[in-house]
Design a protein around this nucleic acid. Structure first.
Length: 431
RNA sequence: GGAGAGGUGGCUGAGUGGUCGAAAGCAGCGGUUUGCUAAACCGUCGUAGGCCUUUAAAGUCUACCGAGGGUUCGAAUCCCUCCCUCUCCGCCA
């Protein structure tokens, strides 16, 4: 959600910048809609002022013991007219709100212009893809061979794009979650939270998934509960309609949650293996900051996510998304892409974004601190988040990058205390 | 699931149809006083939107007392629906 005054004042500059997005909003008609809305408000409010005055007079006259029947009839007529005008103004207001809610965030000035993924700019590359003396396998072959990944039974139990993990495969997933949470809480200064996995529509509106992207979500029939597509939703909305103490900022939170996505429209993409699932696990990093510190915090957040990959010894690169590849609510996004031998390429494993005040405005998240002359001032906070990391894809990256010629998987040093194993060997649980 | 109580400004808490945007207290902010601290006293102190204005401030108007409807000339106050919180009972991991 944009600030209306700014949006009006800088309409031309903002629309130019927005036109660089992949699905540029149609801003034509904004000025007219805004003018009509304001005219309607004016007309209705003028009448309301008259009614309030008349009502006061009636009260006075009554006190004086005079007859007010004639005045009442008069005011009643005004009331009816107000009801009509309010209805009109309400319709325009809804239309206007809907219009504004559909306008994506403005890309930060440091974001490169571009049409799509091909125009993203690489900012870092760390580690070397492993050189294998044999033909490396993809996880969808290696996993079932080791008896740690079972897609067929998952399809039976639930359906396509679900997975069952067995033995050390299940434990690897759990180890990764604990490892990531420990690093972020002990080394990077985040506070762990465990939020609800179901969220209501107001929360989804707050972070920008609704109203535009309902088809990407799972909804519980007959309720206002939706399966959270990312911990960003419950965690960012923790402070919806609240004012944070400035002295508590920046507030750094991390949360483990499962994530659920309908993946409507992605048929045929990443159909093999567990790269794209309806249910996956993620450790998410979320920050609330003052406006002037949010870009510095975005760099730190991205580095915190990268640190997990460094510690696991996984090769990756970081790209800054161009204007044509950014998400709806984001002002700037870094994608971290891990090397996957099975794909012979890099695959997104984290997406770190600064939303500036876009989400905070929708969700009404403010902060307060002493301003000039000691007077407390409050303003919208900036919100940021990033995966730290997507656990399922990290699982894939470890299995594929650390595979040995004999079909086993070497466990990265940092993970051994968590997994209590140095090597993933065939599990044989299925006989 | 059953029975009951309740949702008012940052907090506590008055207010049951007519200057109530809302008493009072606390916290906050400005000031006065006092060696410092503390205390006392005075003042100030919600949010959003419209108009005015070069912007802002000031001013002015409108709306907001969980949400949405309704009754009325007039609703925090009466009626209806919904949501949430608390207590007790039942059930349950």
């Amino acid at each position: 959600m944009h600030d209306l005054a700014t949006f009006r004042a800088q309409f031309d500059a903002i629309s130019t910048r927005l036109s660089l997005r992949a699905n540029p909003p149609n801003l034509e008609g904004f000025r007219e809609l805004d003018a009509r809305r304001r005219a309607a408000i004016q007309e209705a409010e003028e009448l309301k002022a008259r009614r309030n005055a008349a009502t006061g007079e009636i009260a006075q006259l009554r006190k004086a013991g005079e007859d007010t029947a004639a005045r009442q009839v008069e005011v009643r007529a005004i009331g009816e007219r107000i009801a009509e005008l309010d209805k009109q103004a309400g319709t325009l207001e809804d239309e206007f709100r809907q219009f504004l809610a559909g306008v994506p965030n403005v890309p930060h000035e440091s974001v490169p212009a571009g049409r799509g993924p091909e125009d993203n700019v690489e900012v870092r590359r760390v580690g070397e893809p492993p050189a294998f003396s044999f033909e490396p396998k993809a996880h969808w072959d290696l996993g079932p061979e080791l008896g740690i990944l079972d897609l067929e039974r998952a399809a039976k139990v639930t359906g396509a794009r679900f997975a069952v993990y067995w033995g050390l495969g299940a434990r690897l997933e759990r180890a990764l979650i604990n490892f990531m949470l420990d690093v972020h809480t002990r080394e990077h200064g985040y506070t762990e939270v465990l939020p609800p996995f179901l969220v209501n529509s107001a929360s989804l509106y707050g972070t920008g998934q609704l109203p535009k992207f309902a088809e990407d979500l799972f909804k519980c029939e007959g309720t206002d509960f939706w399966l959270a597509p990312t911990a960003e939703v419950p965690v960012t909305n923790l402070f919806r309609s609240e004012t944070l103490e400035g002295s508590n900022l920046p507030l750094r939170l991390c949360a483990y949650t499962p994530c659920f996505r309908s993946e409507a429209g992605s048929y045929g993409r990443d159909v093999r293996g567990i790269i794209r699932q309806h249910q996956f696990q993620k450790v998410e990093l979320v920050k609330f900051t003052r406006p002037e510190q949010s870009y510095e915090e975005l760099e730190k957040l991205t580095a915190d996510a990268e640190d997990i990959l460094r510690r696991l010894g996984l090769p990756f690169r970081t790209v800054v998304l161009c204007t044509g590849d950014m998400g709806f609510s984001s002002a700037k996004t870094y994608d971290i892409e891990v090397w996957l031998p099975g794909q012979n390429g890099f695959k997104e494993i984290s997406s770190c974004s600064n939303f500036e005040s876009f989400q905070a405005r929708r969700a009404s998240i403010r902060y307060r601190e002493p301003g000039k002359g000691g007077k407390p001032k409050s303003d919208f906070a900036h919100t940021l988040n990033g995966s730290g990391l997507a656990v399922g894809r990290t699982w894939v990256a470890i299995v594929e990058n650390y595979q040995a010629a004999d079909g086993t998987v070497v466990v990265p040093e940092a993970l051994r205390p968590y997994l209590n194993a140095e090597r993933i060997t065939p599990q044989g649980v299925l006989g």
